[in-house]
Design a protein around this nucleic acid. Sequence first.
DNA 1: TCAAGTTACGGCGTTCGTAACTATT
DNA 2: AATAGTTACGAACGCCGTAACTTGA
Lengths: 124, 124
Amino acid sequence: MFITEIAKTGSIVNTSDRLFVSSPAISLAISSLEEELGVKIFERSRNGLEPTEIGKKLIIAAQEILNQIEKFKQEAKSDSSEIEETLSISAVQSLCRSIIPKTSAVLKAKFPKITLQIKEAHPS
Amino acid sequence: MFITEIAKTGSIVNTSDRLFVSSPAISLAISSLEEELGVKIFERSRNGLEPTEIGKKLIIAAQEILNQIEKFKQEAKSDSSEIEETLSISAVQSLCRSIIPKTSAVLKAKFPKITLQIKEAHPS
DNA sequence: TCAAGTTACGGCGTTCGTAACTATT
DNA sequence: AATAGTTACGAACGCCGTAACTTGA
């Protein structure tokens, strides 16, 4: 669904920069979509792409699809984030300074309600 | 998006038959989705799959995505089908009885408003 | 001549199907 | 034993990136 982004940025190159996808990939994706639908979505020009009349309608419809997908993800996220647990972690000092901070950041992002108890252990 | 179909048919096997996709492919797709989202969508049992609570919500959200996609396609179709042309075709008798009917059926499906003028030609 | 888009092509990842395995009744 | 789901694995398809080409100001 590059078409919504192209509509916003005005060109394939800008979209390429913004989404970190190469111009040829985007160009081909658009062409393929147009051929599949039998509809020209954009007018190509020297400095960018401009939606056709039907293109504008399709871009709106595409944006609605993306919104629904976002809703879907949020729905799932709101559930998995309902996990409320207390996770106790013991680790030697070196680990406390290195991987533990990264790990806990990831966990906090996925399960906002989690409680982390980190305890420094003494190697035997 | 196999999850909506599974919700309707009640099992992977039925979905497999209905969508002409193998059971393992569907099974793996569901597992992957569940892992990606960090959410269990179905309870597995001897005779089929039943949605969990969050699964039901996700299935509804997924169905809305599919509906939006259908809208998108319809939008495109309604445009390409606005082509009103008269297409004249001449062909020798043998062709008139063979490929022409198939071809015109395809054209009529894609461009409902098209007019076909088929004329039998006489080989020189 | 420069900037944007397109075409060509090779590589990689995803997804699929077949086959074999597990589990539940 | 039979049926539904899962795991393993090899193959096919699609999508992407690099490079080269085309086009319009």
